[in-house]
Simulated assay, not measured.
Amino acid sequence: MPSTRIETRQGWLGARRGEFIEAVQQALVAGIRIPDRDRCVRLAEYDAEAMIVPPHVGPHYTIVEISLFTGRSIEAKRRLYAELVAAVAPFGLAPHDLKVILHEVPRENWGLKGLPGSEIELGFKVDV
């Protein structure tokens, strides 16, 4: 049940914001093998002056932060990183313009339906 936040500069996605969010969702499905119905992806856009970025990146620099349950293998993480790069490429985002940060959270530290995530049947495997 990842919770994903996309941060980028305002304006460059234009009317394609929904498509971009969906592309990130599909990368999550392919990368860490979550079901497509497991959706929690948000997009935050900032004025150019509200972000300072490394000098070697372009104007579309994007950060994707994903909070997810602990347990994914390094292979699953590699797959996710590659899927994300491929998913955002059609939007003109170069691999060096994408930063991905994973925040791994123990299931007992994630509340769902008033219960710890460790006490809920997810319907999919986390240890992929």
Rank of each mutant, 00 (worst) to 15 (best):
E7S: 15
E45Y: 06
I63H: 11
P106M: 02
R42K: 12
A27M: 05
E7Q: 15
R39D: 10
L84S: 05
R42C: 12
A23Q: 10
I32M: 08
L84M: 03
A82G: 14
W12S: 07
V100L: 13
Q10K: 13
R37W: 00
A30N: 13
V53Q: 11
T4N: 02
T70I: 09
G71L: 11
L102G: 10
G18E: 12
V88A: 14
A50Y: 01
Q25D: 06
D97A: 06
T70F: 05
E22R: 15
R39F: 10
K99M: 14
E119M: 12
I21H: 03
R72I: 00
V24E: 07
W110M: 13
W110P: 06
P106T: 05
L102Q: 09
P59H: 06
K77F: 04
T70L: 10
R17F: 08
T4V: 10
A87W: 05
A87N: 05
L68H: 04
D97H: 06
I66P: 11
V24H: 06
F69G: 14
I6P: 02
P2N: 02
Y81W: 08
A86W: 03
K77A: 08
V57M: 04
P55S: 11
H96W: 05
V126Y: 05
A94S: 14
I74P: 13
E19S: 15
H103P: 14
Y81H: 12
M1T: 09
Q25M: 06
P116I: 00
L122Y: 00
V53R: 13
L122P: 00
G114Q: 04
E121L: 07
G92F: 12
R5G: 11
A94T: 09
V64C: 04
N109W: 08
R107L: 15
E121Q: 08
V88W: 05
E121C: 03
I120Q: 08
G117L: 10
K99P: 05
L68P: 12
P35H: 03
V105F: 02
A50K: 13
G18H: 04
P35T: 04
V128P: 06
L112K: 10
F91A: 10
Y46G: 11
F20C: 06
N109F: 11
R72C: 07
L28V: 00
V24C: 08
